[in-house]
Write a protein that binds this DNA or RNA. Structure first.
Lengths: 208, 208
DNA sequence: TGACCTATGTGATAAAAGTTACTGATTGTG
DNA sequence: CACAATCAGTAACTTTTATCACATAGGTCA
């Protein structure tokens, strides 16, 4: 796993990787598992080795507002931030594709900041990227109408999975954009007519 | 200023305060000054001694979506994050009340993370608080209709200024919520009828 | 195959928000 | 004081989004 790990987190120094191997816990989850809930205390920082996790905010009445995906080589910024303060989670994390994780216990996450330059940079980098991503999300909902928000949503999914075939139902999209299925169906139809994509049952084929 | 500084940033160690005094630059701005723009490179991390700064995102067509205020004793999380990577600003910062600032040059901000425990904790704390605040903002726009968003907006302003008298015109609020003045006027009227507040020219008196 | 479940398409209608147009009120300034 | 500028109130209308109701289509499995 040592070899593999260096490939997924190439910026980590050898000493850091040794420290991780010695202290962190490996854990696996399968699709559908919820590994973090709103209000739950966070005890670990999570590094993703394989698979994919959806990070979202939950509404009082079942809305699941999509924020971003965690992919291999990434870490959960929120778990890092909360970890240092032993805070409750403000977000939900659900497994989209079976994942292998490395759990870094809270005190180590903090200690390594001072000891390993490459860890420090990784953490700061994670903060920055997520903060920016979240700012983008704010832009899209604050300034854009639903049609543009849908396009933004599809684009982010394309970027995240690196493919043009999105396995999403209209209902799922509607939930994640906090609107109704009918609205999404209609807007997708328009995009199809414009030649932007092709609709299939349970998946959407992007053409551009 | 040394004495004063310790009062505004009580968590800072004496050594850190000395370091700040020796290296940082004091700067003042007056109401209306824009001290950071979208696309501009960030060369300093900003600590607020007095006054107040509005942080917002700018739209292509003049929208000024309100994110949060920077108050005395606080620092700009975004300038910290960007500073470490020499990145462009993604936000706008406008002075709302004349401010005195301490500008920490980029390389020091980074260096001190390893040297001063109290600086490290302050920075992490700033990240965490802002991240959470931004998540709250996402909730309000993703899940709430304009009436609730307005109430949330008023509440945050009350919390920020610590008073119940908000010096805001309907137009300002509308701009910051990216809607039109008429909508805000109507909703404020409703809130007045419900006895939540009292409307005056150029200011709103909260009753609850 | 046919019963059944889920996903999607679509029209009608309602509600929320945005736009236009105009009014009066208050304030500051020469 | 007179005038301009800004702020606020409101009615009428349009657009966007949400909701309801129902039709159809594809896939699963006994």
């Amino acid at each position: 796993m040592n070899q593999n790990f260096k490939k997924i987190f190439p910026s980590f120094s050898n000493v850091l990787v040794e420290d991780i191997n010695a202290n962190a816990i490996n854990q696996s989850f399968v699709t559908g598992d919820v590994i973090m809930r709103t209000g739950q205390y966070i005890k670990n920082t999570v590094l993703v080795l394989s698979g994919s996790i959806k990070i979202y905010r939950e509404d009082d009445d079942g809305g699941e507002f999509f924020m971003y995906y965690l992919q291999p080589g990434q870490a959960c910024a929120i778990s890092m931030i909360c970890a240092t303060k032993n805070e409750k989670s403000q977000i939900m994390a659900k497994v989209v594709e079976d994942v292998e994780l490395v759990m870094i216990p809270l005190p180590l996450m903090d200690k390594w900041m001072m000891q390993h330059r490459s860890w420090y940079e990784f953490v700061i980098d994670t903060y920055r990227n997520r903060f920016e991503e979240v700012l983008e999300v704010i832009n899209s909902i604050a300034f854009k109408a639903m049609d543009e928000r849908l396009e933004f949503y599809l684009k982010r999914h394309k970027d995240a999975c690196g493919c043009k075939d999105l396995k999403l139902s209209h209902q799922e999209i509607a939930t994640e954009l906090n609107t109704s299925r009918e609205v999404i169906s209609r807007l997708l139809k328009k995009l199809e007519q414009r030649g932007e994509l092709k609709l299939h049952r349970n998946h959407i084929e992007l053409l551009k």
